[in-house]
């Protein structure tokens, strides 16, 4: 049996990241798109922790901490925007909101 090493974790992170990115590109519900972004962020966090262990450096974990803070702030503001939009246009999806079309 193969030994468990960093590569396994990194391959898993790459897969989660890819799934998240494909979901972000294909889903239309803004809430689900947000969840996909969270998936991508988690995949990256996983690589940080993995490298932290591999290189014996606590700084990788510190960065994960900051990523989490930023993700929380992002979710708060993003959901606020979604609530504000949904109030005016019930059931809107991401494709309906295209006021910035050139």
């Amino acid at each position: 049996m193969l030994a468990l090493n960093e590569t396994w974790y990194l391959v898993l992170a790459a897969m989660i990241f890819t799934i998240g990115s494909v979901g972000l590109l294909t889903r239309k519900n803004p809430l689900v798109m947000f969840m996909c972004v969270e998936l991508m962020l988690n995949a990256v966090n996983l690589t940080f922790v993995t490298f932290s262990k591999a290189l014996d450096d606590i700084a990788g974990q510190a960065i994960v901490f900051f990523v989490m803070v930023v993700a929380a702030a992002e979710v708060v503001v993003g959901l606020g925007i979604i609530v504000a939009i949904m109030r005016r246009r019930q059931g809107a999806n991401a494709d309906d909101i295209s006021l910035l079309r050139g």
Binding site: L25, M33, I97, S98, L99
Partner: peptide, 18 residues
């Protein structure tokens, strides 16, 4: 000429980033 690229669709932009 480049205006159509700015479709206003957030998913198109995300595709560009990907």
């Amino acid at each position: 000429k480049l205006r159509p690229v700015q479709s206003g669709l957030v998913r198109s932009y995300a595709l560009g980033i990907s």
